[in-house]
Computed example of a mutant assay.
Amino acid sequence: MHSNTQTHTSSYSINCNGRLVDLTSPKIMGILNLTPDSFSDGGKFNNEKLALLHAEKLLKEGAEIIDIGPQSTRPNAEFLSSEEEIRRIGTLISQIKKEFPEALISLDTFYAETVKFGFNEGMDIINDISGGQYDGAMFDTAAETKLPYILMHVNPSYETMHDKIQFEDITLEINRYFSEKTRQLLEKGVKDIILDPGFGFGKTVEHQVKMINETEYLGFGRWPLLIGISRKSFIYKPLGKTALDINEETQKLHMKVLDQGARILRVHDVLEAQKTLLEFNAKKNKS
């Protein structure tokens, strides 16, 4: 598929606490899980000192955004309250901000209360996997903080999050959802929206292959697109591999979505994604 490059030259900038961040050149978001039950890094970083060291490693390797996840959303993960999330985060956000003032911090939560806490600690971006569907106060809170909001496509409830629903056309379905939710967010006064099509959440392998092939049509080119395919089962299961040995395949797919205008790659392995990004930028500067 030859993508129409014109649609991808629009400049995207987001306002993070008064700091304008230009997404014209794509950024890497490094994942920092604080969960003892997280599927791929097994809770290695769930104590503050280790988490801070890992944040430093992610930044050194080329991540510009650190995505802090206090709760695992993999299938059959333990469901946590907002209080428990806040307890897990502790002073990590303010510590990272103090040590690495240039780092942008996104907080992966579907609770408005956790967002309020994170905002007071200095976070920059809200990463809500629920599209405001699991906490009715989320969109209002996003508007109050004035932080950029990552809107992900997902099933309507926590319980059905991983149910595979039969969609006639997944691209159409995701765009219908984006169109409705961005309208709601804009009405509330949320100015900066980033779209995430929600790989790994209630979608079949076929759905996700189609989403990769049709990335350029997701979100109408109006908002920056975040793609999170790192260690997702739609890549490793058909190959009979594990989450940790699909780097080569993942980087090929990263290149494919970058070619189609993706602005943020959410990844576990920053070093490898950084190589792909450098290759992509070199290719782009040549053309």
Rank of each mutant, 00 (worst) to 15 (best):
Thr160His: 05
Val205Tyr: 12
Pro197Asp: 07
Glu206Thr: 13
Ile194Thr: 11
Gly198Arg: 13
Gly200Lys: 09
Ile174Glu: 02
Arg176Ile: 01
Arg176Met: 00
Asp163Trp: 08
Ile165Ser: 05
Gly200Val: 09
Arg222Cys: 10
Leu172Met: 08
Ile194Leu: 08
His207Ile: 07
Lys188Ile: 01
Asp192Ile: 05
Glu187Lys: 15
Glu187Tyr: 09
Arg183Pro: 00
Lys188Glu: 14
Val205Arg: 09
Asp169Pro: 01
Leu185Gly: 06
Leu218Tyr: 06
Gln166Ser: 10
Glu187Trp: 06
Glu216Cys: 10
Glu187Met: 07
Phe220Pro: 01
Tyr177Gln: 00
Asn175Phe: 00
Phe220His: 15
Met211Ile: 14
Arg183His: 12
Thr215Met: 14
His207Trp: 09
His162Ile: 01
Asp169Asn: 15
Gly202Cys: 07
Lys181Ala: 03
Glu216Thr: 10
Arg183Gly: 03
Lys188His: 11
Glu206Lys: 14
Leu172Asn: 11
Glu180Ser: 10
Gly221Pro: 11
Lys164Asp: 07
Phe220Gly: 08
His207Phe: 08
Gln184Ala: 08
Thr160Pro: 01
Leu172Gln: 14
Arg176Thr: 07
Ile165Gly: 02
Pro197Cys: 02
Asp192Ser: 02
Glu180Met: 03
Glu173Asn: 01
Trp223Lys: 11
Gln208Asn: 14
Phe178Gln: 03
Thr171Trp: 03
Met161Cys: 06
Lys210Ile: 15
Tyr217Leu: 12
Tyr217His: 13
Asp196Trp: 10
Asp192Tyr: 08
Glu173Ile: 00
Leu195Arg: 13
Gly200Pro: 05
Gln166Asn: 13
Asp196Gln: 09
Gln184Asn: 04
Gly200Gln: 11
Tyr217Lys: 15
Ile194Lys: 07
Phe167Arg: 12
Ile170Met: 04
Gln208Gly: 02
Glu168Asp: 13
Pro197Arg: 09
Glu206Ser: 15
Lys210Asn: 13
His162Met: 06
Thr204Ile: 07
Glu180Pro: 00
Thr182Ala: 03
Ile170Val: 15
Ser179Leu: 14
Asn213Arg: 14
Glu214Asp: 13
Val209His: 09
Phe167Asn: 08
Phe199Cys: 05
Asp192Gly: 03
Asn175Thr: 01
Ile212Arg: 08
Leu185Thr: 07
Thr215Trp: 09
Asp192Leu: 04
Gln166Leu: 06
Asn175Arg: 02
Glu180Thr: 13
Leu185Phe: 05
Glu168His: 09
His207Ala: 10
Met211Gly: 02
Thr182Tyr: 01
Phe199Trp: 10
Asp192Met: 04
Ile194Pro: 05
Phe199Asp: 06
Ser179Ala: 11
Phe220Lys: 15
Phe167Gly: 00
Arg183Met: 11
Glu214Asn: 06
Arg222Asp: 13
Asp169Glu: 10
Lys164Gly: 00
Thr215Asn: 10
